[in-house]
């Protein structure tokens, strides 16, 4: 029993160390900014693509804000995953019941760029009825296409 408790305590300490050092790195869907963040929203690394600066000051602010948010969400989700691995899904669900849903469950997290839209299928070609050169009544009724 004592050995089991000791093992649990060691596992908990290991988990705490792992969670304290945990970060996630996310690239903005437009590819101009990459952020490494902790689950507490601390920015551990930030890379800006020169192309982003060319889009203007406002775009830089918005893209950085968005990317830090995505990286923080990813780091929080990783924490939940690590906790579930170490303590079991049951305990992770208990923690969610206290602390709130994990980002994966509570938000749609567009970490990956959206897929390119599928190529449009070419329009169905419909065979046209042969044009009647002489539109007199007899020719019209001779053309069976209007019956379709």
């Amino acid at each position: 029993m004592a050995a089991v408790n000791e093992e649990r305590m060691q596992a908990t300490e290991r988990l705490q160390r792992d969670l304290a050092a945990l970060t996630a790195t996310v690239e903005h869907p437009n590819g101009t900014c990459m952020v490494t963040a902790s689950p507490k929203g601390e920015i551990k690394a930030l890379h800006l693509h020169p192309a982003l600066l060319k889009q203007g000051a406002r775009a830089v602010g918005e893209v950085v804000t968005e990317t830090v948010r995505l990286a923080t969400n990813a780091a929080v989700q990783l924490s939940f995953n690590k906790m579930a691995l170490a303590l079991g899904d049951g305990m992770a669900i208990d923690v969610e019941s206290i602390a709130g849903d994990s980002p994966f469950r509570s938000t749609w997290n567009p970490v990956t760029p959206p897929e390119a839209p599928a190529e449009q299928a070419p329009q169905e070609r419909r065979t046209r009825a042969p044009r009647v050169e002489d539109p007199d009544e007899d020719a019209f009724f001779d053309n069976p296409s209007w019956l379709r």
Binding site: G41, G56, A57, T65, A71
Partner: peptide, 15 residues
Amino acid sequence: PGGPPQSVEVSAAAL
């Protein structure tokens, strides 16, 4: 506190 920044603003000169 304990979360990502609410906003990041950059001046034109900062570019």
